[in-house]
Amino acid sequence: MAMPISCSALRRTALVLALVAGGMPAFAQESADQSANQSTDQSATQIASNQPVGEVVLIPNRVIYPGETIELAALKRVTLIAGKHKPDAVATRAEDLDGKVAKRTLLPGRYIPSAAIREAWLVEQGASVQVFFIAGGLTISATAVTLQPGAAGDLVKVRNIDSGKILSGTVMADGTIQVSAS
């Protein structure tokens, strides 16, 4: 004789399958679950005031593809179930995510790993840039072509257009490259 499956056992099974299938879902409070546990004559305000407050995080509300700039419109704010905490190494705040670029596909309802986002490139591969060498009062500038893309503070390789020599330098906030003596 088959035993009836309880709703909580079904939810646990679905959760295990979701974790095994790829990524960790954000455990958000669902208003339907809250209202099922409360009597039907209570107002939403009374229900909310009886619930402990969870941590608020941002998760994608649609698929965000690799190379796409993350905008706040593509994210939704959810409150984690009381007692649940977000895992380490995930970006969940607006200042961590706005204007960053996805390195891999970000799925709706899932946390966004910090390793899955990067700063937007200031210089693209193959772009012509100004390269500066500064030592004391001496400043030497040249034009070069970037051999790899980079964000502010990244170390990139460039090829001097005049000499053909390959140099390594740091991308500055204004998009120029600063090289040092090697």
Rank of each mutant, 00 (worst) to 15 (best):
L138Q: 09
N37V: 06
V20Y: 15
L138M: 04
P149G: 12
M3C: 07
V90N: 00
A151G: 05
M1F: 07
S35W: 12
A9H: 04
S43K: 12
W121G: 03
V57W: 03
I47S: 13
K103Q: 02
A151D: 05
V129R: 14
D41T: 12
K103D: 02
A32Q: 13
S168L: 10
A116R: 01
R62D: 01
A74F: 07
K100F: 09
T40Q: 09
G126L: 10
P66E: 14
M1Y: 07
I112A: 00
R77G: 04
A14Y: 03
D33C: 02
V53T: 08
R77K: 13
Q38H: 10
A74P: 03
S43H: 13
A181L: 14
P113I: 09
K165M: 11
V145A: 02
Q130G: 03
M1Q: 09
R118P: 04
D154Y: 09
Q46C: 09
K157T: 12
F133T: 00
N37G: 12
K84R: 06
R104F: 00
A2S: 14
E68M: 05
A73L: 05
V156H: 04
F132I: 10
G136Q: 05
D41G: 03
P108L: 07
A152C: 10
A173H: 09
S180E: 15
G67C: 10
T79D: 11
I117Q: 08
G136V: 08
D33E: 04
A9M: 13
A115R: 04
P4K: 02
L167A: 08
I161M: 04
T69C: 03
G23V: 11
